[in-house]
C-alpha cells in the first residue's frame, strides 16, 4: 500500500518491536558510564537476583494482562505462601519440602479462587483480585499473628542463598519458569487461546474454545508464580515476614507494561516482561550504586516508567497514524 520511503518505517518498526530492550540497554549503558562497579559479574548477578522477585510475579501477571485481566493479589499471595511454607516447615513439623509444596499449592489455590470469582462469579478481574489481595494478606496476618516465623533449615534457605555454577538458585528458578511459560505462550494451543481471549473473548468462545478453563489456567499460574516469588524471598530472608510483597503487584504490572504488554489485552510476552523486570532491577541497583537516597529513587523510577511508556506510545503512534489507519479510513 505504501511503497515510498521504506527506511524510516523499517527503523521505527525495529524500535517498535524492541523498544523495551533498547530502553534496558540505554539504562545499562548509562549506569556503566556513571558507576564503574556497575558492569561487574558480581554486580550483575546481584541485579539478576534482585530482579527475580518482581520477574516471577510479573510472569504470571503477564498472562493475566494478555487475557485482558489483571491480578492484584500477587503480593499478598507471595506473603501467604512464604508464611505457610515457613510455618508448616518449622512449627508445623511437616519438614521443608512438604512445607514448600503446600506454600506453592496455596498460591495456586488463591489463583483458583480468583478464577472462580472471575469465570463463574462474573466479577471483573480488577475487583476479584482486589478482594483476594485483602483476603490473602489477612490470612497471612492471622496465621503469623503478625510476627515473623524464623528457624528455617538449610534445605529451605538453599533456595534463596546458595548458588549453582556461580548462578544464584532464585535466578535458576526464574530461568526455568520463564522458559516454560514462554513455551506455553508461544507454542501451545493454551498459549494461543490466552492471546485470543485478550483480542476477542466472544470470538474465541464462538470458535469453540473453553474460555473458562483457559482463564483458570492463567490465574492458577499467576498464583503459583507469585507463590514462588514469596517462597524465594522467605528463603533469602531466612524467615517468613508477614509484610513482604506489599506493592509487588504494582512492580509486576510495571514490568509487564514496560515489556510491551497492553492492558487492553491480546499483546505481551515473557521476554519483554523479563526485560521490563530487569529495567526495574537495574534502576534500583544503579541508583543505589550512585548513592541516590531511597526516597528520591522512587521519584526517579516513576519518571523513568512514564518516559518508557510514552516513548513506546510515540513509536507505535507514529506507525499507526501514518500507515495503519490509512487503508482503513475512507
Amino acid at each position: 500500500m505504501n511503497s515510498s520511503s521504506n527506511h524510516a518505517p523499517q527503523l521505527s518498526e525495529f524500535l517498535r518491536r524492541n523498544s523495551t530492550y533498547v530502553i534496558l540497554l540505554a539504562i545499562v549503558l548509562g549506569f556503566a558510564v556513571l558507576a564503574p562497579e556497575f558492569l561487574t559479574v558480581n554486580n550483575l548477578l546481584t541485579v539478576a537476583l534482585q530482579s527475580t522477585l518482581v520477574a516471577l510475579a510479573a510472569i504470571g501477571m503477564t498472562l493475566a494482562i494478555i487475557t485482558g485481566g489483571i491480578d492484584l493479589s500477587v503480593g499478598s499471595v507471595a506473603a501467604l505462601s512464604g508464611a505457610l511454607a515457613a510455618g508448616l516447615a518449622t512449627r508445623g513439623g511437616l519438614g521443608t519440602y512438604p512445607g514448600l509444596l503446600i506454600g506453592l499449592m496455596a498460591g495456586a489455590g488463591m489463583g483458583l479462587l480468583n478464577a472462580v470469582m472471575i469465570v463463574w462469579g462474573r466479577i471483573p478481574p480488577f475487583v476479584a483480585t482486589l478482594a483476594s489481595m485483602a483476603i490473602a494478606r489477612g490470612l497471612t496476618l492471622v496465621y503469623t499473628q503478625g510476627r515473623p516465623i524464623a528457624g528455617l533449615d538449610r534445605a529451605f534457605t538453599f533456595w534463596g542463598s546458595e548458588s549453582l555454577l556461580g548462578v544464584p538458585m532464585p535466578v535458576w528458578v526464574l530461568l526455568v519458569v520463564a522458559v516454560l511459560v514462554h513455551l506455553l505462550l508461544s507454542q501451545t494451543a493454551l498459549g494461543l487461546h490466552i492471546y485470543a481471549i485478550g483480542g476477542g473473548e466472544e470470538t474465541t468462545r464462538l470458535a469453540g474454545v473453553n474460555v473458562g478453563v483457559v482463564k483458570v489456567c492463567v490465574y492458577v499460574i499467576s498464583g503459583a508464580t507469585a507463590a514462588l516469588s514469596g517462597l524465594i524471598l522467605t528463603a533469602r530472608l531466612w524467615s517468613a515476614q508477614p509484610n513482604i510483597g506489599v506493592g509487588l503487584e504494582l512492580d509486576a504490572i510495571a514490568a509487564a507494561v514496560l515489556g510491551g504488554s497492553s492492558l487492553a489485552g491480546g499483546v505481551g510476552g515473557i521476554p519483554g516482561t523479563l526485560a521490563g523486570a530487569f529495567i526495574i532491577g537495574v534502576l534500583s541497583n544503579g541508583l543505589n550504586l550512585l548513592e541516590v537516597p531511597s526516597y528520591n529513587q522512587q521519584v526517579i523510577k516513576g519518571l523513568v516508567f512514564i518516559l518508557a511508556v510514552m516513548l513506546d506510545y510515540f513509536i507505535k503512534q507514529r506507525r499507526t497514524v501514518r500507515t495503519r489507519r490509512a487503508p482503513l479510513a475512507g
Binding site: 494461543l192 492471546y195 485470543a196 485478550g198 483480542g199 476477542g200 470470538t203 474465541t204 491480546g266
Partner: peptide
C-alpha cells in the same frame, strides 16, 4: 467481523 486482530490470518 469476528476475527481477532492481534492474531495472524492462519491463527
Amino acid at each position: 467481523l469476528a476475527l481477532i486482530p492481534q492474531l495472524t490470518v492462519g491463527q
